[in-house]
Write a protein that binds this DNA or RNA. Structure first.
Lengths: 169, 169
DNA sequence: TATTGTTATACTCTATAACTATA
DNA sequence: TATAGTTATAGAGTATAACAATA
């Protein structure tokens, strides 16, 4: 019960042995934040960028199909597409055969912005990879892919917070 | 303006060339979620675990000093410490010399729980590292540390969302 | 007047589910 | 009855700043 002598020095960050899990978690957050920052000047959030890119690769797909591919719930898709459409970056087209569905298309302006965004993304990738040589970078990518496969991560789909729990511990 | 023929096949996830940034972001989210899941049975959120661990390494430090070390705002610290104290895992002790400050101590029960949590964390680390051999794991750690240094990541401190932007792009 | 810890308010994001119009 | 998209409601988490006690 007696108080220990209150140390007044600097706080000691308990040095744990290097951890793959914690390092990846730290780096993942920082990478996501940096990417968000470099995209911000274009007015694109990471999620909007991923959707624009997906629509460009899949013109005419339904809003629902695209949302499912990115694990974005239908009710969230509405607001996201609303804004991108309002800004003239993509369009909802009605389907003559089924008037419930909305098929998404990228506009000419959307394509221009997407092109810029892709260039920004490539520059970002170069920047964050800068500390590594080409061979080291390939080595890292190979190792990360091994872990990603083990975790059943789908290429191109970000496991934001949308997926509660796929399966298997 | 004429509609393109609406493709009805599967959605094509545009295969981008492998990206260190995106892979790290994906893996980081998954690692954080898995860690959260393995800690849940102990009733500890990752943030609570980090704080418990920090207090154990720094008994008698003030609430404010500990919060700053983890980049947790003072107003958030209150609720976090409230709950851990309510559960009997740590205690606020008044400082006789300055009655404004609260110095934090881990209780015996807190120590027991922390010990369990550390074991869970080690098992988690082994699990996520399982796809790699010992040499590969060391290789990966070395490469990740290079990137972490470049991003000015502090060992043991998670850049959750608390740090808006340190400095330098 | 400055500082530690606390509390209160407002805001953002999200999930959930109700709702509409079609099928 | 089922489905695509939409809207509405409520909840969690947070930042911000006001506040009380003490220095």
């Amino acid at each position: 019960m007696s108080d220990v002598k209150p140390a007044e020095g600097p706080v000691n960050i308990g040095e744990a042995p290097s951890s793959v899990g914690f390092l990846l978690s730290q780096l993942g957050f920082v990478m996501a934040r940096r990417f968000q920052q470099v995209m911000a000047p274009l007015g694109l959030e990471p999620r909007q960028f991923l959707l624009m890119r997906l629509v460009a690769f899949n013109e005419g797909k339904t809003q629902q199909a695209l949302g499912e591919a990115l694990n974005i719930p239908a009710s969230r898709m509405v607001a996201i597409v609303d804004e991108l459409e309002r800004r003239g970056l993509l369009e909802r087209h009605p389907d003559p055969a089924d008037r419930r569905v909305r098929r998404l298309y990228v506009t000419a302006e959307g394509r221009r912005l997407l092109q810029q965004a892709l260039e920004v993304a490539m520059a970002h990738e170069q920047r964050v990879s800068a500390p590594l040589g080409p061979a080291e970078r390939e080595q890292l990518l190979a190792l990360l892919h091994r872990l990603a496969d083990d975790q059943q991560i789908t290429a191109g789909v970000h496991p934001d917070l949308t997926t509660p729990d796929p399966a298997g511990c």
